[in-house]
Design a protein around this nucleic acid. Structure first.
Length: 468
RNA sequence: GGCCCUAUCGUCUAACGGUUAGGACAUUGCCUUCUCAAGGCAGUAAUCAGAGUUCGAUUCUCUGUAGGGUCACCA
């Protein structure tokens, strides 16, 4: 269906191949804001059979670290961003130097004497000779933007001949790498006029620009570590699905228009249209991300779900002898409760998991369900024990080869009708789970099996009969 | 403050200049034969304001207001 084999062979014809890039600086871990930029550039390239390149902008030696660089690659790998080329800006200083020398020779830039105002300032920097004119460019998302560059002055393009500053480096690199679609955050709009001036000075063609709206924190300011942005790898560690992250993050600032909410990466690539991107910023909403993730989890087969889940299963439970015979049933129960796989551990901490694998400990009083459940019936420890005894006796007669939630229900239901549904079902459920809240008694019985179910009901019975 | 960008439910968003302004998340209520979860149904909730253009503006123009971004020898 997808046009994967449409035109993979290279053609030297008039229509230029689209080249986009993602140019992160390794001065922080990769969060949803930067990742979204990468994703959109990736979509544009993939949708048009173009190229998607990576450039690590590590010219700031002070703040760039190996660790952050690794985090960027780790994240891109997890979130399935394959690229067609990668360069490090620090490996390209010779190229920058060449252009700097050329600009100086042509008097389009000059070495300027400075009076240092802060620590680290040089006595001498290289400034761009600003032609002081109005620069207009067309943004794929916003239309025409024009800025009078006069107030920029002769801005600095290098600290020294060997130390280019961002503005010079991006322009040279994009030019030499053949980038013809510059897709970046809205926060770069003020830089674009400078870059165009430099492009004109070095004779580089002007690429197409698309300035994406910002990803925002809940307070509507730029998404950042300070404002709660997390490394995306944190979501991996919590057991989120990559497809879910891609799906959710794609929908911040863009959507294909229909009423579908859940998409695969391939579907998004096919539908993506950079010109339909929103102009205003969008808040990163963890709550909706959870929902999207859950939807993707639900698309998994039983075995896929189980494999993912087991990575987060508490060791202590896995080592229980009951584990392997009950886990499949537990997977089905847990399936419509979890929003991410690590939540299984939260369930365990709440005491909502262990009882599937081992008999619960609980206070006898919670067996006598809340006042409202009794509906006026007179109920005490002895009479409830009696009811459980009857239930047990009836269940005993049920053959274990037809033991399942339906047969258990058929067996218990008549008793529940005559003794009071609330009373019977609550008491059975609590004797099986030990909790006020849990799945219903029938599904619990099925999961535990006949033997264990009867054992737990019998246990509840004797707890009730104890003299205090 | 200068420059730039932006403005539809709380949030993400849909709507050739003509719709009862739609959907999703969240939220509220009800149903779903005990609790919880899931599910179903229903509800609350938005075009920033003011002019103009037009037979008719969410949509086009202007002004105002608000918010954001950016003003480094960081990227």
């Amino acid at each position: 269906m997808n046009n994967t084999n449409k035109s993979t062979e290279k053609t030297e014809d008039a229509t230029e191949q689209i080249v986009t890039r993602f140019a992160p600086s390794p001065t922080g871990f990769l969060h949803a804001g930067a990742y979204r930029t990468a994703l959109f550039a990736y979509f544009v390239a993939r949708k048009n059979n173009g190229k998607f390149l990576i450039r690590i902008e590590d010219t700031d030696r002070e703040r760039s670290t190996k660790e952050f660089e690794e985090n960027i690659f780790e994240t891109m790998e997890w979130l399935a961003l394959d690229y067609d080329g990668m360069e490090k800006q620090s490996d390209r200083v010779e190229n920058h130097k060449m252009y700097l020398e050329k600009l100086i020779k042509e008097d389009k830039a000059y070495v300027s004497k400075e009076t240092p105002v802060k620590e680290g300032d040089r006595e001498e920097v290289i400034r761009f000779r600003n032609p002081n004119k109005v620069v207009t460019f067309t943004d794929l998302i916003r239309g025409d933007i024009s800025v009078d560059t006069t107030d920029l002055g002769d801005f600095v393009i290098a600290k020294s001949i060997n130390e280019p500053v961002f503005h010079l480096a991006v322009v040279v690199d994009d030019f030499e790498m053949g980038v013809n679609h510059v897709i970046r955050g809205e926060d770069h709009i003020p830089n674009t006029p400078r870059h165009i001036l430099i492009m004109e000075a070095i004779g580089a063609p002007i690429p197409k620009f698309a300035h994406l709206p910002l990803v925002l924190s809940p307070d509507r300011t730029k998404f950042s570590k300070r404002k709660g942005a997390l490394p995306l790898t944190v979501y991996r560690d919590k057991g989120y699905l990559p497809e879910a992250l891609i799906n959710y993050i794609s929908m911040i600032g863009w959507n294909p228009g229909g009423e579908q909410d859940i998409f695969t990466k391939e579907e998004i690539i096919n539908l993506f249209d950079i010109t339909k991107v929103q102009k205003g910023g969008g808040i990163f909403d963890d709550v909706k991300l959870k929902w999207v993730n859950k939807e993707h989890m639900l698309k998994l087969s039983h075995d896929e779900y189980k494999n993912n889940l087991e990575k987060f299963m508490p060791e202590e439970l896995v080592s229980l002898p009951t584990y392997s015979s009950r886990i499949d049933s537990v997977v089905d129960i847990v399936r419509d409760r979890l929003e991410y796989f690590k939540q299984i551990q939260e369930m365990d901490e709440e005491g909502d998991l262990a009882y599937f694998f081992k008999a619960p400990l609980y206070d006898r009083e919670i067996l006598l369900c809340a006042e409202k459940m009794r509906k006026g019936k007179d109920l005490n420890h002895e009479s409830l024990a009696k009811i459980l005894e009857i239930c047990k006796a009836e269940l005993e007669k049920l053959e274990s080869n037809i033991w399942n939630k339906d047969s258990v229900k058929d067996t218990l239901w008549p008793i529940a009708e005559s003794e009071g549904r609330g009373i019977v079902l609550w008491a059975i459920r609590v004797s099986l789970s030990g909790k006020e809240k849990s799945p219903d008694p029938f599904i619990l019985s099925e999961t535990l099996g006949k033997e264990e179910t009867l054992k737990r009901i019998g246990e509840a019975e004797s707890i009730l009969k104890e003299k205090l």
